[in-house]
């Protein structure tokens, strides 16, 4: 961010120029993203205009359906149901996957024994897990969330296992000599070292989880975005399908921008800013 101090420039002047260029630098990525999305919309509109079909509505039609669904409250009800499942499955997958991953990463013999299990679970198709969960545990919320979590846990395990292997033993030794308590060790020694791995697992996790949640809803739930998409699929209503999809993608984008990124900035505040 800040260039190395090159000489005896008055500090005030330096601050002025940097705040101006800072504003421009902050706006440029936002404008780029906006222009890029606008371009995509335009392209979509042109294509829909060139090939008019009920199966390929333009952005304006989708927007109208979106507004109508929002006005009657359906949109928020189903978005809320899906978001709740995503959040629950995410928390379960991250906690369980992290614990297993760290244990495997720090115990070589356990890792050797369980590594084939991890590969096995990594390769079981999501659909199979969902169907089995519904058959074994019934068409209920716990089975739905559990099935999504089980799909994600092996990915978290693999990432966190790498994280645990990369732990610096000198910090653990320091903590042992100074008799850190268990909670202090987890909070101040372990988690900060695992933070990049947690961030990576979270990022890939949320994207994967919400896609699987839609399948779970399609197969065995009576609300949520997945249920709505299945409903409109049977009605052959592509406009509504696109409206729900875009609404959910927008929600995930907002979560990324206003939750994930700020949290990440806070977690890495101690790192020296790249010059």
């Amino acid at each position: 961010m800040s260039a190395p101090d090159t000489g005896d420039r008055p500090p005030g002047a330096a601050a002025d120029t940097s705040s101006q260029s800072g504003l421009a630098a902050a706006l440029t990525p936002v404008l780029t993203v906006a222009a890029s999305l606008l371009g995509l919309c335009l392209l979509w509109g042109l294509a829909a205009h060139a090939w008019p079909s009920r199966a390929f509505p333009g952005p304006a039609q989708v927007w109208q359906v979106l507004l109508a669904e929002a006005a009657n409250g359906d949109l928020f009800y189903h978005l809320g149901a899906t978001l709740g499942r995503v959040a629950a499955a995410y928390v379960v997958a991250m906690v369980v996957g992290s614990v297993i991953g760290v244990l495997l990463g720090s115990h070589r013999s356990a890792d050797r024994f369980f590594a084939p299990w991890v590969v096995l679970f990594l390769n079981i198709p999501a659909l199979v897990v969902i169907v089995l969960a519904y058959i074994w545990f019934g068409l209920n919320e716990a089975a739905a969330i559990g099935a999504v979590a089980v799909n994600k846990i092996p990915n978290v395990v693999v990432t966190m296992r790498e994280g645990a292997r990369a732990l610096d033993p000198s910090y653990a030794e320091m903590a042992a000599v100074y008799r850190f308590g268990l909670l202090d060790r987890i909070r101040h020694v372990l988690l900060p070292q695992l933070q990049p791995y947690l961030a990576a697992a979270s990022r890939s996790g949320i994207a994967l989880i919400w896609k699987i949640v839609l399948v779970v809803e399609l197969l065995g739930r009576s609300n949520g975005v997945g249920f709505q998409i299945y409903l409109y699929f049977q009605l052959f209503d592509v406009t509504a399908i696109l409206a729900y999809t875009l609404a959910f993608v927008a929600v995930m984008l907002v979560i990324e921008l206003f939750l994930v990124q700020p949290v990440e900035r806070y977690a890495t505040r101690w790192r020296r800013r790249p010059a």
Binding site: S170, Y171, E173, M174, V177, Y178, R179, H188, V189, P192, Q195, W270, R271
Partner: peptide, 16 residues
């Protein structure tokens, strides 16, 4: 009843 150590490297937690 405590021991303290100064290691070869400072071993300070970088995030604190």
């Amino acid at each position: 009843d405590r021991i303290a150590a100064v290691f070869q490297e400072p071993v300070l937690l970088p995030w604190r």
